[in-house]
Nucleic acid binder design. Structure first.
Lengths: 242, 242
DNA sequence: TTCCGAAATCTTGGATCCAATTTGCGTGCC
DNA sequence: GGCACGCAAATTGGATCCAAGATTTCGGAA
């Protein structure tokens, strides 16, 4: 039952098992099946289960995660808006790849936006928020696996940038982080994590009220990650950048 | 046929005629009905046909623009991703309003992003692009009505910022412009257009190669529009900002 | 043997149909 | 007379069904 399927299922079969495992983690009580499908597919793209260039057949995805094609279509539309998948007219959807140039753009803009967000946020900093930041940074460093790793760090930066006070600004930052999330994950698996201490370093600068120092820590962290991502994308060659 | 309908159709009837007119302009050959519905509804929100706070009943919209409910749902999902509408679980969708604080955020970020885009673009400026900019600026100034007015200006800025060379950067800028597009339109209708000359002023600075001057023109233009939008939002009070 | 064309199959996109949930109204009780 | 509970109607969300288009394969001809 598995020797002939290789040809039939083409590029979509290899991820079936892993995708089902992801679907299992999301089986909890969702209000709508569409949002569940969105979360499953988004996580699948972020952790590499659905690789860039992968062709996304609606029916295959639908029966893999156990729903109809309709919520899958809803999810794909949302993912297209996020820039994670790409629709080719009547020819279906594929997981969008980020070129090296686009990744560089993302990090250039992130430096701009995140430093600005940090400065705004530091104007409204409180001891309570500092304490909360330390706590979130610790749990973020503790998390190791795919999607949870991203979630924990997201919470840290949401607090750091004052997401609640500047929702639009934070929304933009999140979109950019989403675009490069999978490459950071891939890089982390390959290159190891010597960046773990930047959380504490950042919090220390914020606590000291030194905006320039905090901005510099942030900038060097982002450019460091950027260079690592770019190196990985160059190493993989045109395959992922197609 | 119009005296009793006011109560029956509630908040959605007043826009029916105008919406149908918009639908007529988009009746051209679309590949998918979903994208057509998206364009129609997006334009309707941008030009105020669908006002902020407006409740969007899927069936009403569907029969007004002459399609089924399914492509309307697709369009609404996309519009939610754009931040133009808001889904309330099982209770339907409404046109999202922008608070004054959020509008301020949008313009703050736009200053950051657009000045940076302009500087990058000026590094790759050519006489051909200058000429094209002049042409686009002229046609943009000529356009007066709703959606076309936005389109023409979008083309101008796409060329100014080198959208082709920096697609991610441009995508971010477009998202932000989309969020405030309707308020600019509203402000323009109210306040008149003393901002028309900024196109030529901008092109002149770009042609001279003076990045700082061009950035300053852009910044003052954006902050000027921002203040006008904020004034309008404050004047309307909590109605639009709810 | 290779290239072009046509037909068949597969896949996306749309419409109608059905179920589930929410909201509004009416009635009954306190 | 007011509030609460329950029922009914309407609207959203999901599934199955149908049509349109694209791709691939097979066959024929050069």
């Amino acid at each position: 039952m598995s020797e002939r399927e290789t040809r039939t299922a083409g590029a979509s079969a290899p991820s079936a098992e892993a995708l089902q495992k992801l679907a299992g983690r999301h089986q909890a009580g969702y209000r709508s099946v569409g949002t569940m499908a969105y979360d499953i597919l988004r996580d699948a793209i972020l952790d590499g289960t659905l690789a860039p260039g992968q062709k996304l057949r609606q029916e295959t995805l639908a029966e893999t995660i156990g729903v109809s094609r309709l919520p899958v279509r809803s999810a794909l539309i949302q993912l297209e808006a996020d820039g994670l998948v790409e629709f080719h007219a009547r020819r279906g959807a594929v997981v969008k790849a980020l070129s090296a140039e686009q990744a560089r753009e993302v990090y250039d803009i992130r430096v701009l936006l995140e430093i600005d967000a940090l400065r705004h946020s530091m104007d409204e900093m409180t001891p309570e928020r500092i304490a909360r930041l330390r706590e979130l940074g610790r749990t973020a460093d503790a998390e190791e696996e795919g999607a949870d790793f991203v979630d924990a760090r997201t919470q840290f930066y949401a607090e750091l940038y004052g997401a609640a006070a500047r929702p639009v600004h934070w929304e933009m930052i999140e979109q950019l982080r989403l675009k490069v999330g999978r490459y950071v994950l891939g890089w982390r698996l390959v290159g190891g994590g010597e960046h773990g201490h930047s959380h504490e370093e950042l919090v220390a600068a914020v606590e000291a009220g030194d905006a320039d120092a905090a901005a510099e820590v942030l900038r060097s962290h982002l450019t460091g990650v950027r260079d690592a991502v770019l190196a990985m994308l160059s190493a993989e060659g045109g395959a992922a950048a197609r």
